[in-house]
């Protein structure tokens, strides 16, 4: 079943995805040849350990991109949930309540943005840009300093891990932190939603053309608002995972992360024009970014090289997308 679905998108989606996977393997090989200790299971697993929060957020961003919109409030939502959960935990609010509250805030923020965009026809970029500033501003209002987290539950999630042993040698040993399993759940849920639910398919239809979708009798309003809701929900969840990861909340964390989330989706084959994209691609996209980061660390370069390289990669993939789109248009005219 999955196969039939994929074959039809061979044009745009898969070329991008194939390049991405090949690129990932090449980079991994490059690192393995160049640096000692690089080729190991833990290098691979650390891609997930270190980027789980980004993967979760990027999966959310993929929903919005598929619907044909854009959400650049992701990074500040992550920062906001990080700071406010640290703030609340510091004041003794129970961990589960904090998490619940943060997820709720995520959904409300996202749905509000979606509603503004849909009902009042405001441009997504303005609304989510304002959202970005609002959340960042609130971060600083809550606390200008970094707040450490000492809640036992958060600590368990942060430090608890499962050892993975695939062989005797050290290179075949690695570990997975508990919070990575949250990512797995989100991933599975996202794949299921996009492929096997009515809502997921409406999302693709919406990205294919809003007028068509509404004339086909699909509920455009609900779909669009839900897409932004999911995006912010994932960002909030990513924020919680991020505070597991760092055990602290700081308002200026993750500046410019929206570009990472966006580019991982694009690198993974999601079209910026909407209607095409998979979460699996997005996850591979984040893995590429993770490996760039790893190489930059091994090479002992300025960390800003990561951002610059990711931006360059994004440009490269956007150009590829454009070329494929133009080609498809031309060949279509010839066939018919």
């Amino acid at each position: 079943m999955e196969q039939t679905g994929k074959r039809k998108r061979v044009h745009i989606n898969n070329i991008s995805l194939v390049i991405t996977v090949v690129l990932f393997i090449l980079m991994f090989l490059f690192g393995s040849v160049k640096y000692n200790n690089f080729l190991s299971l833990s290098t691979f697993l650390n891609l997930f350990n270190d980027n789980a929060y980004l993967m979760i957020a990027a999966i959310g961003a993929t929903f919005v991109l598929i619907s044909g919109g854009i959400d650049i409030s992701i990074a500040s939502t992550i920062a906001f949930t990080g700071v406010s959960s640290a703030f609340l935990l510091e004041r003794g609010v129970p961990a589960f309540l904090v998490i619940l509250l943060m997820l709720l805030v995520g959904i409300i923020v996202g749905c509000t943005q979606g509603a503004l965009i849909h009902y009042f026809k405001l441009q997504p970029f303005i609304v989510t840009l304002a959202g970005q500033f609002l959340m960042r501003g609130l971060c600083v209002v809550i606390s200008e300093r970094s707040i450490p987290i000492s809640d036992p539950f958060f600590k368990t999630m942060a430090l608890g891990k499962v050892a993975v042993r695939l062989g005797e040698a050290k290179a075949w040993n690695g570990k997975i932190y508990y919070y990575v399993f949250i990512l797995l759940i989100v991933f599975a849920a996202a794949v299921y939603t996009l492929r096997y639910t009515k809502f997921g398919r409406c999302l693709y239809a919406l990205g294919g053309g809003e007028t068509s979708a509404s004339l086909m009798g699909l509920n455009v309003a609900r779909t669009k608002i839900a897409a932004y809701g999911i995006s912010s929900f994932c960002a909030a969840l990513g924020g919680i995972v991020f505070s597991f990861y760092t055990l602290a909340g700081f308002g200026l964390q993750n500046l410019g992360l929206e570009l990472d989330a966006l580019s991982s989706a694009v690198i993974g084959g999601t079209l910026l024009t909407g209607g095409v994209g998979t979460v699996a691609g997005t996850v591979v996209g984040v893995m590429i970014e993770g490996i760039i980061q790893t190489i930059v660390t091994y090479q002992n370069l300025n960390t800003w090289w990561t951002k610059v390289t990711i931006a360059a990669l994004l440009c490269f993939f956007i150009v590829i997308q454009r070329i494929i789109a133009i080609r498809a248009e031309k060949s279509k005219g010839k066939n018919e």
Binding site: T4, G5, K8, K198, R201, C202, Y204, A205, G207, G208, G209, T211, S212, A213, L215, M216, G217, L218, G275, V276
Partner: peptide
């Protein structure tokens, strides 16, 4: 008024 990015079958049954 259908969606070009979806399969023929899906265009018939979407919703």
């Amino acid at each position: 008024n259908l969606c070009p990015n979806l399969s023929v079958a899906e265009n018939i049954y979407i919703g």
